[in-house]
Design a protein around this nucleic acid. Sequence first.
DNA 1: CTGTTAGCGCATTCAC
DNA 2: GTGAATGCGCTAACAG
Lengths: 338, 338
Amino acid sequence: MNKINIKYLAKELNLAISTVSRALRDSHEISAATKAKVFALAKELNYEPNPNASGLRGQKTKMIAVVIPDMVNDFFSLVISGIEKITQSKGYHILLYFTHGDHELEVSFIKTLANGRVDGVLLSMSSENNNRHHLGELEKKGIPLVMFDRVCDTLQHVVKVTTDNYESAVIATRHLIDAGCKKIAYLQVHKNISVGKIRMKGYLDALQQHSSQASPLVLESANDNEETFQFLQQMLIKEKPDGIFASIEKLAVICYRVCEKIRLKIPEDIKVISFSNLQTASLLNPSLTTITQPAFDIGETAANELFQLINRKDKSVAVERNVVLKSRLIKGRSTARN
Amino acid sequence: MNKINIKYLAKELNLAISTVSRALRDSHEISAATKAKVFALAKELNYEPNPNASGLRGQKTKMIAVVIPDMVNDFFSLVISGIEKITQSKGYHILLYFTHGDHELEVSFIKTLANGRVDGVLLSMSSENNNRHHLGELEKKGIPLVMFDRVCDTLQHVVKVTTDNYESAVIATRHLIDAGCKKIAYLQVHKNISVGKIRMKGYLDALQQHSSQASPLVLESANDNEETFQFLQQMLIKEKPDGIFASIEKLAVICYRVCEKIRLKIPEDIKVISFSNLQTASLLNPSLTTITQPAFDIGETAANELFQLINRKDKSVAVERNVVLKSRLIKGRSTARN
DNA sequence: CTGTTAGCGCATTCAC
DNA sequence: GTGAATGCGCTAACAG
């Protein structure tokens, strides 16, 4: 098993190493004939340049890191698909890291990445309002960073790609109000997620400004699906809302099941709208209206922003930019039974 | 912005480069005092070894590649989560590639990987019964390979991790037969996926051996969900099966919706069992029985197998092993309304 | 216990 | 147009 490197190619062709190197990079100072010979042999032997060597030499790795909390929901799967599309087209490689919501792990990843392992970093934070000192490390080393979805509000001089969580929550709530709902409940995830809070603020503000509803009605999901099911059932029976706004799709699915059990027809008896990335909920019931985040777009956009940073000439000037992508409201059918 | 490398550390501490290097690797031939000094400064300056340099030197990259078709279904998300757990614990990094079912892309990825970019490769094939010449390239370069889920049956001397698709399909079908179903339909994905074929074979064999059902009843899904919905509805009305075996979860969800529309109660009127990775279907209806693939386990197992190959001493002997993981049958509740 | 040296594979500068 | 030499940062063999 002989190692195929430019040295080997050079020896085979009776050329100097540097000549082979230049030929492979299609340098204009190499004759066409020589280039042809080199290319031919390289192809025949399946030569691939050693990435460590060229990385070490050129301070370029052709790799970017993607750091996300995890992959349990389809949102990040879609984001990564978008990232992959761009990365692939640029001839780059993706290094993938999961923080599992652990800030320490995030810090440790970023530190490791800060020494020339990658040309750039795409980050969705493990948790918000944390120490963000570690991100400065990247900047110090001149490694571009783009944050997406779970961004750090207080951090300046960084490119951020997010969605209009507040606005779309307002739109969703207004959608129910405009449809005639007088009592709208908001199904909230129990965790302390800022995205959820922002959405709830949209719900609250829309309610206050556009509805006569006396007070908001918020239900936090329990740890367990079955428990959430029970809570929701109690709430629906006791409070009798005529509109439901679910902050995530899973809650809409549970809600759907409760409605079925207690014989509430959607959308005749109660209207439901939900944030959603996958189409399970709407597949389940085409009458369900969804607010769909452009997850794939977020990935594409974030990756494109990162490559702009990687390729720009003057790295000394910090770039700050906020890209906000719009969610789409996909209306369900007007009757439950198609 | 001064570059922090061992050379810089050495100069600062008035030590030789090699001493610093050894100290950082905690070599036993360095005095405790020196080690302490080196560690202190390294930590202070946030020193991280340059991976290209150590990779080039030691022919180790601390990276593995994961090559999968895509991420659109949750199966591969779960697999990756399992891989990540192991990879993380070994201090390794994951390079992620999507083939999008394109065999040419798979070949191109593997070729690129074959030149020292990674220490090992985890592969789920883009499509089956294809040219597998490119995999020989990895072997030639001594880069270990572990295949999972979509493996190449005809390829010898390779470690493969799969699930018991045939057996679990038999079990699923028998489950319906034992529950008293006399006419069981199989919902098949329209694509030419071998996993789907294997499952159908399990259905057919179980039917033939254990049921008095005159002939099998197979429905292929259409391109479009709504179309599939219509087809399925027609089939249920016309054929009146009392059991449904769905090869993927999405089909079970659609089936569920059809049943609801034409007022068939699950499981009283019709029993449904489905392959599933996520819990959407069973969340939807706790009476649904599912065959759950151990997706996370597949990831863990495949990664563990790969690291065994990476770390073993004698790389000259080819290893062949087939690890088959068992799917779990999760019984739904006996009544639809809880 | 510590220092000197060579070389991993490649790209680039300088010679010719 | 081509060849020879240098160094990217690190590790390991060899000295002392």
